[in-house]
Design a protein around this nucleic acid. Structure first.
Lengths: 119, 119
DNA sequence: TGTTATAATTAGAATAATTCTAAAACAAAG
DNA sequence: CTTTGTTTTAGAATTATTCTAATTATAACA
């Protein structure tokens, strides 16, 4: 694995945020001022291919990159705040309904976060 | 609702596909040769805002637009084929786990379609 | 060590998707 | 008819991302 790929993987695994490629680039740049955007994109793609991170596509926002450990996402419809949550695993349930093996699933749950609800 | 908005809404509601803005534009153009891409984007955004359609963001593909009626999506990891499926409604289940009201959820299930599995 | 091969990185152009801007066309209301 | 507001247009602009070709770094080995 390439030098930058390791650093990027570490950044993603250590961050609680769901960073865009741009944010990852800026963060990496602090430690490695010579790095360039294309490198970040290349490595992000490679890491996705290798199954070490996953890409999250979310409406009206650039793609975000996330650790691979299985979890779901909770999103505020109003302010867009995105957080991790662990709902009970649905794999078996979904397989029963589908009647076939599933590889994975992606669950986003929309609600109003306390802050936005309070207004 | 604007002229084109109605036509676009109808196209989406009548199609079984999950069309990109580009595909909708091309389809609409057949009936309305003067229409222009920006108009399609404007109207798609307006329709989303009004809650009449929904936008689907899927990794490595432009956004797609879909009817609003609640359903889930089944996606082949290999060929990317996207189809609708109705899994049992999870709202109550998720609300129990979350302890709060949810507005909606978006569930994508990945598997290998029979064609790709067969290879 | 010098030579060759391979992989990683860079700079910057190119592309794709989408949005913006300002003007033109259209529609409705007085 | 005018005025006012909305919709549509053309095309430029922006954003996110990928591509290309050159450059640099790394490793393999004669």
């Amino acid at each position: 694995m390439s030098r930058y790929a390791e650093l990027i993987l570490e950044l993603i695994n250590q961050s609680k945020d769901h960073m865009t490629a741009e944010q990852i680039f800026l963060k990496l740049k602090k430690a490695e001022p010579k790095v360039v955007q294309a490198t970040v994109y290349n490595n992000l793609n490679a890491l996705c291919q290798d199954g070490l991170i996953r890409k999250l596509s979310i409406e009206n926002s650039p793609d975000r990159y996330d650790k691979i450990r299985k979890h779901d996402h909770l999103i505020c419809r109003k302010c867009g705040a995105l957080s991790d949550i662990n709902f009970e695993d649905l794999t078996k349930n979904l397989e029963n309904q589908l009647g076939e093996d599933i590889l994975s699933y992606d669950l986003k749950v929309f609600y109003l976060c306390p802050k936005c609800r309070g207004e």
